[in-house]
Structures are given as structure tokens and as C-alpha cells.
Design a protein around this nucleic acid. Structure first.
Ligand SMILES: [Mn+2]
Ligand SMILES: [Mn+2]
Ligand SMILES: [Zn+2]
Ligand SMILES: [Zn+2]
Lengths: 144, 144
DNA sequence: TATTTATTGCAAATCTGTCGCAATTAATCG
DNA sequence: CGATTAATTGCGACAGATTTGCAATAAATA
């Protein structure tokens, strides 16, 4: 069992939820992967689980702060929260669709927090998506 | 006719699309408003336009870079792009749902662009949402 | 104003997400 | 380890959101 799988079980248990087969399957599907759409997640788990169960599990995991939704392109995707992964943001290539995580940047995080304060907000979370052309797509567009 | 309505017509014409009544209605519905959900937009235009037409127009406007989707909470909303409005980001109150625009901040924009460069991306656009408690909701949570 | 082509409205189809309920599974305890 | 109990799941069925084909209509052009 991985460390985060253990964390998941602790999290469920401490909040009075059972550790079930479906919940483990959904968690593993998201582990170590860059954000998945709901459709992709259902496709991965769908052979073994009912659609409704995947939705219910996603809902529960969101409530428990185990996964979060982020906007990538025009859809939202799901990924493990910072407690199970590392805080990061996303670069999306508008040409090939590749999504690259941006590792945490203190200057950026600080600016975000100061801005929230300037508007008298108490920030709890934030998300950033930068869209543009990835290196590979820049090269191929020069060739054309 | 407003300046941005004129811009819209230029944009449509130059790309070979007709300037139609439905397209004008959808554009006006979004003008000078903070992000609308698709449901809100359909409600506003729905009396005069078919649902399908609203969806098709939104799709076209997205392709033409006239409107964009931004994630607000767990849903997306629609708003005019920077060419028709001013570049900004969003603060969302997780308690009352209020959405506040953050006016452009150079330090933030610079950091975003440097990060993109560091990853060899050519950035074209980005979006930021900060979630947290607005001032009013902070006060009421202290009272409780 | 007549002609041509793009656009729209309508209705049907398809996705997406939700719900109630009976069958199953996990947790608990002797 | 079995029996008991309560939570969870699968299975329709369902409501809402978005897409599509096609005939009717409106916009552009000359
Ligand atoms: Mn990610
Ligand atoms: Mn806005
Ligand atoms: Zn690319
Ligand atoms: Zn609030």
C-alpha cells in the first residue's frame, strides 16, 4: 500500500466513512496522474464500477478535500488535492492539448495572497491556468 | 451603436461571418456584465432566441476570441475577452458565492509570463481564480 | 429587387449528472 | 470466526444540458 493510500484510509476512517473497494479504485485512478476529466475517470473505473458510484465517490472526495476540480481548457478536470500531491498550477498547450504542471513558485503565491488581502478576502485556495503554445508546437508552427 | 458593438461587427465581417440579429443579442447580453453562466445567458436571450442558437453563437464567439470561459467555483461562466473588456481575474467567496473582479496587477502578470517562459511556453492567455471568504462573510462568521 | 448562401428554429437525439430503492458489502461485536 | 447492523453500491429511471439534421428564414451581394 502506498503512503497516500494509507492517508486516504485514515481520512475516511476518521470521518466515519467505510474503506470500500470502489473508493480505493477511484483513488488509485487519480493517483500520480495529471488531472483527468470526469469522462476519463468514468472510462477507467467504469468497467468495474457503476457511473453513479464514480460520481458519488468524486462528490465525497471533494467534500473530504481529497480531490479538487480545476479548469483545463474548456472543461474541468479532477486531481488529488495538495495534501495528497504538491501544490501546483497548469500550463495548457492550445495546439496539442498537453497539460504541464507548474511547480510551486513563491513569488507567484505571495502575489496571489497579497492581492486577496488587498480586496479584504481571506484566501483559502486558488487556481491558475496559463494557455499558450508548448515548445514542440512552437517549433512545428515555424516549420509550416 | 457602442464602440465594442462596432468592433464585433468588424470581427465578424473580417472573418467572413454575417452580422445577424441573434449574434447582436448575445453580444449585448454579455456586454458590461460580470461573467454569466450559460443558463443565465439562455434565460436572458431565450425569449427571443432558440437555445441551440445561443449555444452555436457562444461556440462561434469563443472561436473568434470574442468571449471566453472562466471557472467560477465548480462551473464555468462566460465573459467578453480582454479585447472587449479589461484584463482581470476573479475572487470567489466560497460562502456567499459573490464574484469580485481583480483589476490587472503588473507584478502578477509579469510573474505569470516569466513562469511560462521558464517552461518554454509562449503564453497567449491565462486565468486565475482565488477562492476564500469575502469581507462580509468573515464578519458574519465571527459573530456566530 | 432577385439570387445565393449562411444562419436559424425546431424537434429529436445524445450526454451528463442525480435519485430512489432493493441487493450487497463493510464494520462491529459476541 | 459467524451473526447483526448500518453504510454503500448497482440498477434503472429521470431531469437538465448540449448537440445535431434539416427545412424555413434572413443576410449578403450584385
Ligand atoms: Mn495538476
Ligand atoms: Mn470577469
Ligand atoms: Zn503543444
Ligand atoms: Zn461572501
Amino acid at each position: 500500500m502506498t503512503l497516500s493510500e494509507f492517508q486516504l484510509q485514515q481520512q475516511l476512517k476518521s470521518r466515519g466513512y467505510s474503506i470500500t473497494h470502489p473508493r480505493t479504485i477511484v483513488f488509485k485512478a487519480l493517483e500520480d496522474k495529471e488531472a483527468l476529466t470526469m469522462a476519463e475517470l468514468v472510462a477507467i473505473c467504469g468497467q468495474q464500477l457503476d457511473r453513479a458510484t464514480v460520481y458519488r465517490t468524486v462528490g465525497l472526495f471533494e467534500d473530504l478535500g481529497i480531490i479538487r476540480r480545476v479548469q483545463i481548457g474548456w472543461k474541468y478536470k479532477l486531481e488529488l488535492t495538495d495534501s495528497f500531491s504538491h501544490h501546483h498550477h497548469h500550463l495548457t498547450c492550445t495546439n496539442c492539448g498537453k497539460v504541464t504542471p507548474i511547480i510551486e513558485d513563491d513569488a507567484l503565491e505571495d502575489r496571489i495572497n497579497s492581492l486577496a488581502k488587498a480586496y479584504h478576502f481571506t484566501p483559502s485556495d486558488h487556481q491558475i491556468e496559463i494557455r499558450g503554445l508548448c515548445y514542440a508546437c512552437q517549433l512545428s508552427s515555424i516549420v509550416e
